[in-house]
Design a protein around this nucleic acid. Structure first.
Length: 567
RNA sequence: CGGGGCGUAGCGUAGCUCGGCAGCGCACUCCCUUGGGGUGGGAGAGGUCGUGGGUUCAAAUCCCACCGCCCCGACCA
Protein backbone atom coordinates (compact mmCIF):
# COMPACT_ATOMS: atom_id res chain seq x y z
CA UNK A 1 0.00 0.00 0.00
CA UNK A 2 1.25 3.43 -0.93
CA UNK A 3 0.70 5.95 1.79
CA UNK A 4 0.04 8.81 -0.63
CA UNK A 5 -3.19 7.09 -1.71
CA UNK A 6 -4.15 5.55 1.63
CA UNK A 7 -6.84 7.08 3.83
CA UNK A 8 -4.59 7.32 6.84
CA UNK A 9 -5.03 10.76 8.36
CA UNK A 10 -2.51 11.10 11.19
CA UNK A 11 -2.89 13.89 13.69
CA UNK A 12 -0.15 15.96 15.19
CA UNK A 13 -2.45 17.37 17.81
CA UNK A 14 -4.61 15.30 20.08
CA UNK A 15 -8.38 15.67 19.89
CA UNK A 16 -9.69 16.79 23.27
CA UNK A 17 -12.03 13.81 23.45
CA UNK A 18 -9.11 11.39 23.95
CA UNK A 19 -9.19 10.21 27.53
CA UNK A 20 -6.71 7.31 27.49
CA UNK A 21 -3.43 6.49 25.81
CA UNK A 22 -5.11 4.01 23.50
CA UNK A 23 -7.86 6.42 22.46
CA UNK A 24 -5.28 9.14 21.83
CA UNK A 25 -3.08 6.88 19.73
CA UNK A 26 -5.95 5.32 17.80
CA UNK A 27 -7.21 8.79 16.88
CA UNK A 28 -3.76 10.16 16.09
CA UNK A 29 -2.79 7.12 14.04
CA UNK A 30 -5.89 7.49 11.88
CA UNK A 31 -7.44 4.21 13.01
CA UNK A 32 -10.76 5.53 14.26
CA UNK A 33 -12.87 8.67 14.31
CA UNK A 34 -15.75 9.43 16.60
CA UNK A 35 -19.21 9.99 15.15
CA UNK A 36 -21.14 10.46 18.40
CA UNK A 37 -20.78 9.45 22.00
CA UNK A 38 -19.64 5.84 22.01
CA UNK A 39 -19.94 5.43 18.23
CA UNK A 40 -16.88 5.14 16.00
CA UNK A 41 -15.87 4.90 12.38
CA UNK A 42 -13.07 2.45 11.68
CA UNK A 43 -10.68 3.68 9.01
CA UNK A 44 -8.63 1.33 6.82
CA UNK A 45 -5.56 1.21 9.06
CA UNK A 46 -7.63 0.51 12.18
CA UNK A 47 -9.84 -2.03 10.48
CA UNK A 48 -6.79 -3.95 9.25
CA UNK A 49 -5.63 -4.37 12.82
CA UNK A 50 -9.13 -5.34 13.94
CA UNK A 51 -9.26 -8.01 11.23
CA UNK A 52 -5.94 -9.38 12.46
CA UNK A 53 -7.39 -9.87 15.91
CA UNK A 54 -10.48 -11.41 14.36
CA UNK A 55 -8.37 -13.84 12.35
CA UNK A 56 -6.44 -15.01 15.39
CA UNK A 57 -9.67 -15.59 17.29
CA UNK A 58 -11.21 -17.47 14.37
CA UNK A 59 -8.18 -19.73 14.04
CA UNK A 60 -8.19 -20.60 17.72
CA UNK A 61 -11.95 -21.12 17.87
CA UNK A 62 -11.82 -23.40 14.84
CA UNK A 63 -8.97 -25.28 16.46
CA UNK A 64 -11.18 -26.32 19.38
CA UNK A 65 -13.99 -27.32 17.09
CA UNK A 66 -15.95 -24.10 16.95
CA UNK A 67 -18.28 -23.55 13.99
CA UNK A 68 -18.80 -20.02 12.77
CA UNK A 69 -22.36 -18.76 12.26
CA UNK A 70 -23.96 -15.39 11.68
CA UNK A 71 -26.88 -14.49 13.92
CA UNK A 72 -29.16 -11.47 13.57
CA UNK A 73 -28.34 -8.24 15.33
CA UNK A 74 -31.96 -7.15 15.23
CA UNK A 75 -33.78 -9.57 17.48
CA UNK A 76 -37.49 -9.98 18.22
CA UNK A 77 -38.89 -9.12 21.63
CA UNK A 78 -40.65 -12.49 21.83
CA UNK A 79 -37.42 -14.44 22.30
CA UNK A 80 -36.31 -12.11 25.04
CA UNK A 81 -39.65 -12.48 26.75
CA UNK A 82 -39.25 -16.25 26.70
CA UNK A 83 -35.95 -16.02 28.52
CA UNK A 84 -37.42 -13.45 30.85
CA UNK A 85 -34.78 -10.86 30.05
CA UNK A 86 -36.90 -8.34 28.10
CA UNK A 87 -38.10 -6.59 31.26
CA UNK A 88 -34.90 -7.27 33.22
CA UNK A 89 -32.22 -6.05 30.84
CA UNK A 90 -33.17 -2.43 31.35
CA UNK A 91 -32.16 0.75 29.63
CA UNK A 92 -28.89 -0.66 28.49
CA UNK A 93 -30.68 -2.53 25.74
CA UNK A 94 -31.46 -0.53 22.60
CA UNK A 95 -35.05 -1.14 21.63
CA UNK A 96 -36.64 -0.38 18.27
CA UNK A 97 -39.96 -0.87 16.48
CA UNK A 98 -40.59 -1.91 12.93
CA UNK A 99 -43.28 -0.47 10.63
CA UNK A 100 -45.89 -2.80 12.05
CA UNK A 101 -45.06 -1.68 15.56
CA UNK A 102 -43.34 -5.00 16.23
CA UNK A 103 -40.75 -4.63 18.97
CA UNK A 104 -37.10 -5.60 18.60
CA UNK A 105 -33.82 -4.98 20.29
CA UNK A 106 -30.37 -4.40 18.91
CA UNK A 107 -28.48 -7.37 20.28
CA UNK A 108 -26.46 -6.74 23.41
CA UNK A 109 -25.71 -10.49 23.36
CA UNK A 110 -27.15 -13.54 21.62
CA UNK A 111 -28.10 -16.31 24.07
CA UNK A 112 -31.76 -16.08 23.06
CA UNK A 113 -31.35 -16.37 19.30
CA UNK A 114 -28.74 -19.08 19.45
CA UNK A 115 -30.80 -21.10 21.92
CA UNK A 116 -33.77 -20.68 19.61
CA UNK A 117 -31.71 -21.91 16.66
CA UNK A 118 -30.42 -24.97 18.45
CA UNK A 119 -33.77 -25.99 19.95
CA UNK A 120 -35.26 -26.05 16.46
CA UNK A 121 -32.41 -27.87 14.76
CA UNK A 122 -30.98 -30.26 17.34
CA UNK A 123 -32.96 -33.28 18.53
CA UNK A 124 -30.59 -35.85 19.91
CA UNK A 125 -27.69 -36.24 22.32
CA UNK A 126 -25.91 -37.72 19.30
CA UNK A 127 -25.61 -34.23 17.81
CA UNK A 128 -23.92 -32.85 20.93
CA UNK A 129 -21.73 -31.18 21.97
CA UNK A 130 -21.97 -28.15 19.71
CA UNK A 131 -19.85 -25.01 19.83
CA UNK A 132 -21.16 -22.14 17.71
CA UNK A 133 -19.53 -18.74 17.43
CA UNK A 134 -19.93 -15.54 15.51
CA UNK A 135 -18.42 -12.12 15.01
CA UNK A 136 -20.66 -9.12 14.98
CA UNK A 137 -21.68 -5.75 16.32
CA UNK A 138 -23.16 -5.63 19.77
CA UNK A 139 -25.12 -2.73 21.15
CA UNK A 140 -25.20 -1.57 24.73
CA UNK A 141 -26.60 1.80 25.61
CA UNK A 142 -23.93 2.59 28.18
CA UNK A 143 -24.71 5.29 30.69
CA UNK A 144 -21.35 6.83 30.08
CA UNK A 145 -19.35 5.64 27.07
CA UNK A 146 -15.66 6.43 27.49
CA UNK A 147 -12.08 5.49 26.77
CA UNK A 148 -12.56 5.45 23.01
CA UNK A 149 -13.63 2.06 21.70
CA UNK A 150 -12.95 0.51 25.11
CA UNK A 151 -16.46 1.26 26.33
CA UNK A 152 -18.48 2.08 23.24
CA UNK A 153 -22.19 1.78 22.60
CA UNK A 154 -21.63 -0.25 19.44
CA UNK A 155 -18.68 -2.61 19.47
CA UNK A 156 -17.28 -5.62 17.71
CA UNK A 157 -17.52 -8.88 19.56
CA UNK A 158 -16.85 -12.56 19.16
CA UNK A 159 -19.49 -14.50 21.03
CA UNK A 160 -19.63 -18.27 21.31
CA UNK A 161 -22.22 -20.61 22.75
CA UNK A 162 -21.90 -24.28 23.54
CA UNK A 163 -24.57 -26.96 24.02
CA UNK A 164 -24.07 -30.18 25.94
CA UNK A 165 -25.77 -33.31 27.12
CA UNK A 166 -23.88 -33.52 30.40
CA UNK A 167 -21.69 -31.64 32.85
CA UNK A 168 -18.43 -33.30 31.86
CA UNK A 169 -18.93 -32.28 28.25
CA UNK A 170 -19.63 -28.68 29.32
CA UNK A 171 -16.56 -28.75 31.55
CA UNK A 172 -14.42 -29.94 28.65
CA UNK A 173 -15.58 -27.23 26.26
CA UNK A 174 -15.26 -24.61 28.99
CA UNK A 175 -11.67 -25.72 29.56
CA UNK A 176 -11.00 -25.75 25.81
CA UNK A 177 -12.28 -22.19 25.49
CA UNK A 178 -10.30 -21.13 28.52
CA UNK A 179 -7.15 -22.52 26.93
CA UNK A 180 -8.00 -21.06 23.51
CA UNK A 181 -8.48 -17.63 25.10
CA UNK A 182 -5.05 -17.86 26.64
CA UNK A 183 -3.55 -18.61 23.22
CA UNK A 184 -5.54 -15.80 21.59
CA UNK A 185 -4.42 -13.11 24.02
CA UNK A 186 -0.89 -14.46 23.93
CA UNK A 187 -0.86 -14.13 20.14
CA UNK A 188 -2.26 -10.62 20.44
CA UNK A 189 0.77 -9.71 22.54
CA UNK A 190 -1.22 -9.03 25.68
CA UNK A 191 -0.15 -9.45 29.28
CA UNK A 192 -3.31 -10.86 30.80
CA UNK A 193 -4.61 -12.74 33.78
CA UNK A 194 -7.67 -14.97 34.10
CA UNK A 195 -9.69 -14.21 37.22
CA UNK A 196 -12.75 -15.66 38.88
CA UNK A 197 -15.76 -13.57 38.02
CA UNK A 198 -19.25 -12.82 39.14
CA UNK A 199 -21.89 -14.33 36.95
CA UNK A 200 -23.91 -11.10 36.92
CA UNK A 201 -27.10 -10.51 35.00
CA UNK A 202 -26.44 -13.18 32.38
CA UNK A 203 -26.60 -15.69 35.18
CA UNK A 204 -25.09 -19.09 35.52
CA UNK A 205 -22.61 -21.16 37.43
CA UNK A 206 -18.88 -20.64 37.19
CA UNK A 207 -17.20 -17.92 35.24
CA UNK A 208 -13.79 -16.47 34.50
CA UNK A 209 -12.80 -13.11 33.11
CA UNK A 210 -9.63 -12.48 31.14
CA UNK A 211 -8.13 -9.26 32.36
CA UNK A 212 -5.45 -7.18 30.73
CA UNK A 213 -3.53 -5.48 33.49
CA UNK A 214 -3.61 -1.72 32.89
CA UNK A 215 -3.78 1.41 34.98
CA UNK A 216 -6.78 2.64 33.04
CA UNK A 217 -8.71 -0.58 33.59
CA UNK A 218 -12.25 -0.16 34.85
CA UNK A 219 -12.28 -3.44 36.73
CA UNK A 220 -10.58 -4.15 40.02
CA UNK A 221 -8.98 -7.50 40.65
CA UNK A 222 -8.09 -8.91 44.02
CA UNK A 223 -5.07 -11.15 43.60
CA UNK A 224 -2.97 -13.19 45.95
CA UNK A 225 0.69 -13.45 45.08
CA UNK A 226 0.99 -16.38 47.45
CA UNK A 227 -1.25 -18.98 45.84
CA UNK A 228 -2.24 -17.25 42.59
CA UNK A 229 -5.89 -16.78 43.56
CA UNK A 230 -7.33 -13.93 41.51
CA UNK A 231 -10.89 -12.70 41.32
CA UNK A 232 -12.91 -9.71 40.30
CA UNK A 233 -13.59 -7.85 43.54
CA UNK A 234 -17.30 -8.19 42.79
CA UNK A 235 -16.76 -11.88 43.20
CA UNK A 236 -13.84 -12.25 45.58
CA UNK A 237 -14.71 -14.07 48.79
CA UNK A 238 -14.07 -12.00 51.86
CA UNK A 239 -11.98 -13.80 54.46
CA UNK A 240 -13.83 -14.96 57.58
CA UNK A 241 -13.60 -12.54 60.52
CA UNK A 242 -10.72 -12.88 62.92
CA UNK A 243 -11.35 -12.69 66.66
CA UNK A 244 -13.76 -10.43 68.53
CA UNK A 245 -12.32 -6.94 68.81
CA UNK A 246 -12.65 -6.85 72.61
CA UNK A 247 -14.14 -8.70 75.59
CA UNK A 248 -17.41 -10.50 75.63
CA UNK A 249 -18.91 -8.37 78.38
CA UNK A 250 -22.19 -6.98 77.06
CA UNK A 251 -22.73 -3.50 78.45
CA UNK A 252 -26.05 -1.80 78.96
CA UNK A 253 -27.82 -0.55 75.84
CA UNK A 254 -28.01 3.23 75.69
CA UNK A 255 -29.55 5.73 73.32
CA UNK A 256 -27.43 8.76 72.41
CA UNK A 257 -28.19 11.99 70.54
CA UNK A 258 -26.51 12.39 67.18
CA UNK A 259 -28.37 15.34 65.71
CA UNK A 260 -28.05 15.52 61.95
CA UNK A 261 -25.19 13.00 61.94
CA UNK A 262 -25.99 9.77 60.11
CA UNK A 263 -22.94 8.53 58.20
CA UNK A 264 -20.75 6.01 60.01
CA UNK A 265 -17.57 8.08 59.64
CA UNK A 266 -19.27 11.17 61.04
CA UNK A 267 -20.86 9.38 64.00
CA UNK A 268 -17.56 7.60 64.68
CA UNK A 269 -15.87 10.98 64.92
CA UNK A 270 -18.59 12.39 67.12
CA UNK A 271 -18.52 9.46 69.56
CA UNK A 272 -14.74 9.02 69.27
CA UNK A 273 -15.10 5.33 68.42
CA UNK A 274 -13.48 3.40 65.52
CA UNK A 275 -15.62 2.44 62.52
CA UNK A 276 -15.12 -1.26 63.39
CA UNK A 277 -17.41 -0.73 66.37
CA UNK A 278 -20.31 0.30 64.16
CA UNK A 279 -23.07 -1.61 62.46
CA UNK A 280 -23.93 -0.25 59.06
CA UNK A 281 -27.57 -0.85 58.23
CA UNK A 282 -28.54 -0.69 54.56
CA UNK A 283 -32.01 -1.10 53.20
CA UNK A 284 -32.57 -2.66 49.79
CA UNK A 285 -35.46 -3.88 47.74
CA UNK A 286 -35.06 -7.41 46.38
CA UNK A 287 -37.66 -8.56 43.87
CA UNK A 288 -40.09 -6.02 45.31
CA UNK A 289 -39.56 -6.87 48.99
CA UNK A 290 -37.52 -4.76 51.38
CA UNK A 291 -34.45 -6.44 52.85
CA UNK A 292 -31.90 -5.20 55.33
CA UNK A 293 -28.16 -5.73 55.08
CA UNK A 294 -26.02 -5.22 58.15
CA UNK A 295 -22.27 -4.77 57.86
CA UNK A 296 -19.44 -3.82 60.14
CA UNK A 297 -18.88 -0.07 59.90
CA UNK A 298 -15.47 -0.28 58.27
CA UNK A 299 -16.59 -2.59 55.46
CA UNK A 300 -18.52 -1.97 52.25
CA UNK A 301 -21.47 -3.87 50.87
CA UNK A 302 -20.88 -5.97 47.76
CA UNK A 303 -24.20 -5.78 45.95
CA UNK A 304 -23.69 -8.77 43.64
CA UNK A 305 -22.93 -10.89 46.71
CA UNK A 306 -26.08 -9.71 48.47
CA UNK A 307 -28.07 -10.41 45.35
CA UNK A 308 -26.61 -13.90 45.19
CA UNK A 309 -27.21 -14.51 48.88
CA UNK A 310 -30.87 -13.57 48.42
CA UNK A 311 -31.16 -15.36 45.07
CA UNK A 312 -32.88 -12.20 43.89
CA UNK A 313 -33.53 -11.40 40.25
CA UNK A 314 -33.48 -7.68 40.88
CA UNK A 315 -31.87 -5.69 43.64
CA UNK A 316 -31.72 -1.97 44.17
CA UNK A 317 -31.32 0.53 46.97
CA UNK A 318 -34.53 1.42 48.77
CA UNK A 319 -35.92 4.83 47.98
CA UNK A 320 -36.01 7.29 50.89
CA UNK A 321 -39.72 6.67 51.12
CA UNK A 322 -39.32 2.92 51.54
CA UNK A 323 -36.43 3.54 53.92
CA UNK A 324 -38.72 5.58 56.16
CA UNK A 325 -41.40 2.89 56.02
CA UNK A 326 -38.97 0.16 57.04
CA UNK A 327 -36.85 2.01 59.59
CA UNK A 328 -39.36 4.60 60.76
CA UNK A 329 -36.76 7.36 60.59
CA UNK A 330 -34.74 9.51 58.23
CA UNK A 331 -31.99 7.81 56.17
CA UNK A 332 -28.80 7.45 58.20
CA UNK A 333 -30.42 6.42 61.46
CA UNK A 334 -31.54 2.87 60.75
CA UNK A 335 -30.30 0.07 62.97
CA UNK A 336 -30.93 -3.67 63.22
CA UNK A 337 -32.71 -3.60 66.59
CA UNK A 338 -36.48 -3.86 66.33
CA UNK A 339 -36.62 -3.72 62.56
CA UNK A 340 -39.56 -5.41 60.98
CA UNK A 341 -37.78 -6.95 58.00
CA UNK A 342 -35.53 -9.87 57.16
CA UNK A 343 -31.92 -9.08 58.03
CA UNK A 344 -28.90 -10.48 56.22
CA UNK A 345 -25.75 -9.86 58.24
CA UNK A 346 -22.21 -10.08 57.06
CA UNK A 347 -20.07 -12.63 58.91
CA UNK A 348 -17.87 -9.91 60.36
CA UNK A 349 -20.84 -8.49 62.28
CA UNK A 350 -21.00 -11.52 64.56
CA UNK A 351 -17.83 -10.48 66.37
CA UNK A 352 -18.63 -6.87 67.15
CA UNK A 353 -19.29 -6.50 70.86
CA UNK A 354 -20.95 -3.40 72.30
CA UNK A 355 -21.50 -1.93 68.86
CA UNK A 356 -23.03 1.36 67.77
CA UNK A 357 -25.93 1.47 65.34
CA UNK A 358 -28.76 3.70 64.29
CA UNK A 359 -31.70 3.72 66.68
CA UNK A 360 -34.41 3.79 64.03
CA UNK A 361 -35.22 7.26 65.37
CA UNK A 362 -34.09 10.36 63.56
CA UNK A 363 -31.03 11.96 65.21
CA UNK A 364 -30.51 9.01 67.64
CA UNK A 365 -28.00 6.16 67.78
CA UNK A 366 -27.74 3.14 70.05
CA UNK A 367 -24.57 2.33 71.97
CA UNK A 368 -23.66 -1.16 73.27
CA UNK A 369 -25.97 -2.96 70.89
CA UNK A 370 -25.17 -6.69 70.79
CA UNK A 371 -26.21 -9.35 68.38
CA UNK A 372 -28.17 -12.13 70.04
CA UNK A 373 -29.24 -9.90 72.89
CA UNK A 374 -30.63 -6.84 71.07
CA UNK A 375 -31.22 -8.14 67.56
CA UNK A 376 -31.02 -11.30 65.46
CA UNK A 377 -30.23 -11.61 61.77
CA UNK A 378 -32.32 -14.03 59.72
CA UNK A 379 -28.98 -15.31 58.45
CA UNK A 380 -25.30 -14.62 58.03
CA UNK A 381 -23.61 -14.45 54.63
CA UNK A 382 -20.52 -13.08 52.95
CA UNK A 383 -21.89 -9.83 51.57
CA UNK A 384 -18.99 -7.44 51.96
CA UNK A 385 -16.33 -6.20 49.58
CA UNK A 386 -12.89 -7.64 49.95
CA UNK A 387 -10.27 -5.00 50.80
CA UNK A 388 -6.60 -4.69 49.89
CA UNK A 389 -4.60 -6.40 52.62
CA UNK A 390 -7.43 -8.76 53.54
CA UNK A 391 -6.39 -12.37 53.88
CA UNK A 392 -6.58 -14.52 50.78
CA UNK A 393 -9.64 -16.80 51.09
CA UNK A 394 -7.51 -19.69 49.87
CA UNK A 395 -4.12 -19.43 51.49
CA UNK A 396 -4.36 -16.67 54.07
CA UNK A 397 -1.70 -14.34 52.69
CA UNK A 398 -2.58 -10.72 51.99
CA UNK A 399 -4.33 -9.91 48.74
CA UNK A 400 -3.51 -6.85 46.63
CA UNK A 401 -5.70 -4.94 44.19
CA UNK A 402 -4.96 -4.45 40.50
CA UNK A 403 -6.72 -2.57 37.74
CA UNK A 404 -7.69 -4.53 34.67
CA UNK A 405 -9.48 -4.33 31.34
CA UNK A 406 -11.88 -7.18 30.74
CA UNK A 407 -11.16 -8.52 27.26
CA UNK A 408 -12.83 -11.91 27.51
CA UNK A 409 -15.32 -13.77 29.59
CA UNK A 410 -16.24 -17.43 29.83
CA UNK A 411 -19.41 -18.66 31.58
CA UNK A 412 -21.02 -21.92 32.44
CA UNK A 413 -24.65 -21.05 31.98
CA UNK A 414 -26.11 -24.41 32.92
CA UNK A 415 -29.74 -24.71 31.89
CA UNK A 416 -30.75 -21.12 32.61
CA UNK A 417 -31.71 -20.34 29.02
CA UNK A 418 -32.53 -23.82 27.77
CA UNK A 419 -35.00 -24.37 30.63
CA UNK A 420 -36.64 -20.97 30.24
CA UNK A 421 -36.93 -21.43 26.48
CA UNK A 422 -37.82 -25.11 26.54
CA UNK A 423 -34.76 -26.07 24.53
CA UNK A 424 -33.76 -29.66 24.91
CA UNK A 425 -32.77 -32.96 23.34
CA UNK A 426 -33.52 -36.64 23.74
CA UNK A 427 -31.13 -38.63 25.90
CA UNK A 428 -30.00 -42.20 25.28
CA UNK A 429 -33.00 -43.30 27.30
CA UNK A 430 -35.32 -41.29 25.12
CA UNK A 431 -36.05 -38.71 27.81
CA UNK A 432 -36.23 -35.02 27.10
CA UNK A 433 -33.52 -33.00 28.83
CA UNK A 434 -32.58 -29.31 28.63
CA UNK A 435 -29.26 -28.41 27.01
CA UNK A 436 -26.41 -27.55 29.31
CA UNK A 437 -24.91 -24.38 27.94
CA UNK A 438 -21.78 -22.30 28.09
CA UNK A 439 -21.05 -18.90 26.61
CA UNK A 440 -17.75 -17.32 25.75
CA UNK A 441 -17.19 -13.72 24.68
CA UNK A 442 -14.29 -11.60 23.49
CA UNK A 443 -14.51 -7.87 22.90
CA UNK A 444 -12.55 -7.75 19.65
CA UNK A 445 -12.36 -3.97 19.41
CA UNK A 446 -11.52 -3.83 23.09
CA UNK A 447 -8.67 -6.33 22.66
CA UNK A 448 -7.16 -4.00 20.10
CA UNK A 449 -7.49 -0.96 22.35
CA UNK A 450 -6.07 -2.91 25.28
CA UNK A 451 -3.11 -4.02 23.17
CA UNK A 452 -2.33 -0.42 22.29
CA UNK A 453 -2.82 0.64 25.89
CA UNK A 454 -0.12 -1.87 26.76
CA UNK A 455 2.19 -1.57 23.75
CA UNK A 456 3.31 1.98 23.12
CA UNK A 457 5.93 4.56 24.00
CA UNK A 458 5.99 8.35 23.97
CA UNK A 459 6.24 8.39 20.19
CA UNK A 460 3.39 6.07 19.33
CA UNK A 461 2.14 2.55 18.99
CA UNK A 462 4.47 -0.47 19.11
CA UNK A 463 2.45 -3.19 17.41
CA UNK A 464 2.81 -6.78 18.51
CA UNK A 465 3.63 -8.51 15.20
CA UNK A 466 0.54 -10.71 15.33
CA UNK A 467 -1.91 -7.85 15.08
CA UNK A 468 0.10 -5.17 13.25
CA UNK A 469 -1.83 -3.74 10.28
CA UNK A 470 1.36 -4.09 8.19
CA UNK A 471 4.68 -5.68 9.05
CA UNK A 472 6.97 -3.18 7.34
CA UNK A 473 7.03 0.49 6.41
CA UNK A 474 9.49 1.67 3.76
CA UNK A 475 10.60 5.30 3.98
CA UNK A 476 12.15 6.92 0.93
CA UNK A 477 13.42 10.04 2.66
CA UNK A 478 13.52 12.26 -0.39
CA UNK A 479 11.06 11.54 -3.17
CA UNK A 480 12.55 14.17 -5.43
CA UNK A 481 15.64 11.99 -5.71
CA UNK A 482 14.95 9.29 -8.35
CA UNK A 483 17.59 6.91 -7.02
CA UNK A 484 16.00 6.93 -3.59
CA UNK A 485 12.53 6.34 -5.01
CA UNK A 486 13.78 3.56 -7.23
CA UNK A 487 15.53 1.72 -4.40
CA UNK A 488 12.56 2.09 -2.07
CA UNK A 489 10.11 0.82 -4.66
CA UNK A 490 12.32 -2.14 -5.42
CA UNK A 491 12.30 -3.19 -1.79
CA UNK A 492 8.59 -2.47 -1.52
CA UNK A 493 7.78 -4.58 -4.58
CA UNK A 494 10.17 -7.29 -3.45
CA UNK A 495 8.44 -7.62 -0.09
CA UNK A 496 5.00 -7.55 -1.66
CA UNK A 497 6.02 -10.33 -4.05
CA UNK A 498 6.91 -12.42 -0.98
CA UNK A 499 3.53 -11.77 0.54
CA UNK A 500 4.72 -9.33 3.18
CA UNK A 501 2.27 -6.63 4.21
CA UNK A 502 4.18 -3.44 3.52
CA UNK A 503 3.44 0.25 3.52
CA UNK A 504 5.43 2.64 1.32
CA UNK A 505 5.61 6.22 2.54
CA UNK A 506 5.83 7.80 -0.92
CA UNK A 507 4.50 11.16 0.23
CA UNK A 508 6.48 14.26 -0.67
CA UNK A 509 7.29 15.02 2.95
CA UNK A 510 10.38 15.87 4.92
CA UNK A 511 12.31 13.06 6.57
CA UNK A 512 11.27 14.29 10.01
CA UNK A 513 7.58 14.03 9.18
CA UNK A 514 8.00 10.50 7.90
CA UNK A 515 9.96 9.37 10.93
CA UNK A 516 7.41 10.86 13.30
CA UNK A 517 4.53 9.21 11.47
CA UNK A 518 6.36 5.89 11.25
CA UNK A 519 6.90 5.96 15.01
CA UNK A 520 3.26 6.89 15.57
CA UNK A 521 1.95 4.12 13.32
CA UNK A 522 4.28 1.73 15.06
CA UNK A 523 4.71 -1.02 12.45
CA UNK A 524 7.21 -3.66 13.61
CA UNK A 525 9.85 -3.00 10.93
CA UNK A 526 11.07 0.18 9.26
CA UNK A 527 13.27 0.39 6.19
CA UNK A 528 14.88 3.78 5.68
CA UNK A 529 16.12 4.64 2.20
CA UNK A 530 18.19 7.83 2.17
CA UNK A 531 20.81 9.32 -0.09
CA UNK A 532 23.56 9.07 2.50
CA UNK A 533 23.48 5.28 2.98
CA UNK A 534 22.38 4.71 -0.58
CA UNK A 535 25.76 6.08 -1.68
CA UNK A 536 27.26 3.02 0.04
CA UNK A 537 24.60 0.80 -1.53
CA UNK A 538 22.87 0.33 1.81
CA UNK A 539 19.56 0.92 3.55
CA UNK A 540 18.72 0.89 7.26
CA UNK A 541 16.47 -1.72 8.85
CA UNK A 542 15.12 -0.96 12.31
CA UNK A 543 12.69 -2.65 14.65
CA UNK A 544 10.10 -0.30 16.14
CA UNK A 545 10.42 -1.93 19.53
CA UNK A 546 14.20 -1.75 19.74
CA UNK A 547 16.59 1.15 19.45
CA UNK A 548 19.36 1.31 16.87
CA UNK A 549 19.19 0.24 13.26
CA UNK A 550 21.15 -2.12 11.06
CA UNK A 551 22.60 -1.18 7.68
CA UNK A 552 22.23 -3.81 4.99
CA UNK A 553 23.00 -3.88 1.26
CA UNK A 554 19.98 -2.95 -0.83
CA UNK A 555 19.83 -6.25 -2.64
CA UNK A 556 19.79 -8.16 0.66
CA UNK A 557 17.15 -6.00 2.35
CA UNK A 558 14.19 -8.17 1.34
CA UNK A 559 15.80 -11.40 2.51
CA UNK A 560 16.99 -9.91 5.77
CA UNK A 561 13.48 -8.66 6.49
CA UNK A 562 11.91 -11.98 5.61
CA UNK A 563 14.17 -13.59 8.19
CA UNK A 564 13.45 -10.99 10.84
CA UNK A 565 9.69 -11.15 10.37
CA UNK A 566 9.73 -14.91 10.95
CA UNK A 567 11.41 -14.47 14.33
C1' C B 1 -30.12 10.52 37.12
C1' G B 2 -27.06 14.18 40.55
C1' G B 3 -22.74 17.65 40.53
C1' G B 4 -19.15 20.42 37.51
C1' G B 5 -17.31 22.15 32.78
C1' C B 6 -17.29 23.00 27.56
C1' G B 7 -19.43 24.09 22.48
C1' U B 8 -15.64 29.69 17.69
C1' A B 9 -12.73 26.59 10.16
C1' G B 10 -10.75 19.41 9.64
C1' C B 11 -7.65 19.51 14.61
C1' G B 12 -5.87 22.58 18.81
C1' U B 13 -7.43 27.24 20.57
C1' A B 14 -7.77 33.21 21.62
C1' G B 15 -11.67 36.66 21.97
C1' C B 16 -16.75 36.47 26.31
C1' U B 17 -15.27 39.44 32.53
C1' C B 18 -16.30 45.14 30.34
C1' G B 19 -21.38 44.15 23.51
C1' G B 20 -18.65 47.59 18.38
C1' C B 21 -14.68 44.56 11.38
C1' A B 22 -14.11 36.79 14.06
C1' G B 23 -8.24 36.15 15.18
C1' C B 24 -3.88 32.66 15.89
C1' G B 25 -1.08 27.75 15.28
C1' C B 26 -1.34 23.13 12.64
C1' A B 27 -3.56 20.81 8.43
C1' C B 28 -5.36 22.17 3.13
C1' U B 29 -4.39 24.77 -2.34
C1' C B 30 -0.57 27.34 -5.43
C1' C B 31 4.62 29.36 -5.98
C1' C B 32 9.66 29.48 -4.32
C1' U B 33 13.02 27.12 -0.85
C1' U B 34 14.78 22.87 1.82
C1' G B 35 15.79 17.47 1.77
C1' G B 36 18.19 11.87 7.68
C1' G B 37 13.77 13.53 13.15
C1' G B 38 7.22 17.72 12.31
C1' U B 39 12.51 23.22 6.85
C1' G B 40 12.04 28.64 5.72
C1' G B 41 9.30 32.38 2.98
C1' G B 42 5.15 34.24 0.02
C1' A B 43 0.08 34.09 -1.85
C1' G B 44 -4.82 31.87 -1.03
C1' A B 45 -9.27 29.10 0.24
C1' G B 46 -12.08 27.67 4.36
C1' G B 47 -16.85 30.28 9.74
C1' U B 48 -25.18 29.63 10.28
C1' C B 49 -19.24 31.49 16.59
C1' G B 50 -24.08 24.27 18.79
C1' U B 51 -29.75 25.50 17.87
C1' G B 52 -33.96 28.62 18.84
C1' G B 53 -35.81 32.82 21.17
C1' G B 54 -35.06 37.51 23.92
C1' U B 55 -32.48 42.39 25.35
C1' U B 56 -29.92 46.21 22.29
C1' C B 57 -28.71 51.07 17.31
C1' A B 58 -25.39 46.79 17.52
C1' A B 59 -24.64 39.96 20.33
C1' A B 60 -19.36 34.93 19.65
C1' U B 61 -19.83 38.28 24.03
C1' C B 62 -25.65 39.73 28.15
C1' C B 63 -30.56 36.79 29.43
C1' C B 64 -33.87 32.32 28.72
C1' A B 65 -34.83 27.54 26.67
C1' C B 66 -33.20 23.41 24.11
C1' C B 67 -29.42 20.17 21.87
C1' G B 68 -24.62 17.99 21.88
C1' C B 69 -20.01 16.77 24.12
C1' C B 70 -16.52 16.06 28.26
C1' C B 71 -15.24 15.12 33.51
C1' C B 72 -16.67 13.24 38.61
C1' G B 73 -20.33 10.23 40.94
C1' A B 74 -24.36 6.85 40.96
C1' C B 75 -25.68 2.73 37.61
C1' C B 76 -24.17 -1.38 34.50
C1' A B 77 -21.31 -6.03 31.22
Amino acid sequence: MKLSKYLLPTLKEVPSEADTVAARLMLRAGMIRKVASGLYEWLPFGLRALKKVERIIREEMDRIGGQEVWLPTLQPKELWEESGRWPVYGKEMMRVKDRKDGEFCLAPTAEEVVTDLVRREVRSYRELPLLLYQFGEKFRDEIRPRFGVMRAREFYMKDAYSFHADESSLDKTYDDCYAAYGRIFERCGLKFRPVEADTGAIGGKSSHEFMVLAETGEETIAACEGCGYAANIERADAPPPTAPTDGHQHDELKEVDTPGVGAVEAVAKLLKLPAEKFLKTLIYVADGKPVVAVLRGDTELNEPKLQRALAAKQLFKASEEIYRQVAGCEPGFAGPAGLNAAIVADHAVADVVNAVSGANKTDKHLVNINVGRDWRPARYADIRMIRPGDKCPRCGKAVAFFKGIEVGHVFKLGTKYSSAMNAGFLTEKGEKSPFLMGCYGIGVSRVLAAAIEQCHDDNGIIWPAGIAPFQVVVLPLNVSEPKVVEAAEKIYEGLKAKGVEVLLDDRDQRAGVKFKDADLLGLPWRVTVGERKLAEGKVEIKARAAGGGEDVPIEKAVDVLLNRIKL
